[in-house]
Design a protein around this nucleic acid. Structure first.
Lengths: 202, 202
DNA sequence: TTAGATTTTGAACAATGTTCAAAATTTGCG
DNA sequence: CGCAAATTTTGAACATTGTTCAAAATCTAA
């Protein structure tokens, strides 16, 4: 059945081709300014073909956001080589913030757009694996810090959520253009510095 | 000129009438699910009339978000009576979180939707007064804490931004349905507890 | 009363997500 | 190769959105 195989591969290739075109447009123009017709044009296929490979626009946005989490996780992967858990945790803060600042549109899609989660909720599984595995990585790092004697008096999982929230918050406010009121030159960087200084004392 | 006065009052009343209808729909269905036609229907006027009183949809969303900030600030007002600055700061965290949890759609509009800021940027002034005055309130509270001997080694404005970001982050992740992966019963409440515990030690 | 000003209307337009019958292409077989 | 069936691709068509604007309806003032 060599033909069936080749066909399957071609289908997958075209799907990726459309996705790549969507990603290009999207990184440049942001979620709100990409249309299905844009994507079809960029991929050099018709609108109908896009709908053969993706159920609807939410499916495309979900696929893109999945790539974003994949990218973020691969950046975290490097941190495995930082032995001290507290140093690893702080370094991951820098990695996270850098990812957000470098990919604001992707960051917005990953955390401030309803579509990807709506798509997940309608799936048979219903679980948000992208977010789950990323949070687990953070939770385990925090637990390693606790095991190393840090964060006494804190509840590890809740603390992990707070850490995520804090770093997310300073990125999100900046990306959503709410940080200008601080009149800081680099609110994200300075905010992170303050947070890491706090963590260091625990 | 009694007539001109009455006319002016009637214009303002109709504007508020439309806004009130928009607010009702919006609090119930969220930003993404309210259309101009919905608003016109709810206000019992035609689509065209809505456009007489508001330049475009962004103007409506901006007006709504302004009411949200007005509500939030009036909640903060009560805290003026908490004498100890550290207690005041912590109480304001609870007030902020409660506001967000009680008004998720409004919170989303205030911090995770581009429209209000776009509208501000196109205005003659160009400054985001709603956010500015709210941040100033927080900045002054943090400064009062510094004056009372807290937060040594921290930069007040950057710290204020971090505090805002942290509390915003735990609210935002929850409201945008990204917090389910923590498997915490009450991620917002537990996250805030962790944060206030951290602040207490500084 | 009535002419002019003001307010309100809703049909019409462009842009969007989505569908689907038909056209174009590819496959499998005699 | 030739050709029918299966597959893939197409783009016209539909519903819904934000938005505009000439006309209708209403109100004002003399």
């Amino acid at each position: 059945m060599g033909v069936a195989e080749r066909k399957a591969k071609e289908k997958e290739e075209l799907r990726n081709h459309i996705l790549a075109a969507a990603m290009r447009l999207f990184a440049e123009k942001g979620v709100d300014n990409v249309t299905i017709r844009n994507i079809a044009d960029a991929a050099e296929y018709s609108v109908g073909t896009v709908y053969v490979y993706f159920k609807d626009k939410s499916a495309i946005l979900h696929a893109l956001h999945t790539q974003g989490f994949s990218d973020l996780r691969s950046r975290f992967q490097i941190l495995t080589y930082v032995a001290d858990p507290m140093e690893r945790l702080k370094a991951s803060g820098h990695v996270y913030v850098q990812f957000a600042v470098e990919n604001p549109h992707m960051y917005q899609l990953m955390f401030s757009v309803a579509d990807p989660i709506d798509h997940v909720e309608c799936a048979p599984d219903g679980k948000w694996h992208e977010g789950q595995s990323t949070f687990n990585f953070l939770r385990d790092m925090v637990q390693a810090c606790v095991d190393a004697g840090h964060f006494s008096g804190h509840q590890p999982v809740a603390l992990a959520y707070l850490i995520w929230g804090a770093v997310h918050g300073i990125c999100s406010l900046s990306i959503m253009k709410r940080a200008s009121v601080t009149e800081l030159n680099n609110p994200v960087g300075e905010g992170l510095t303050e947070f890491l200084r706090m963590l260091d004392r625990l």
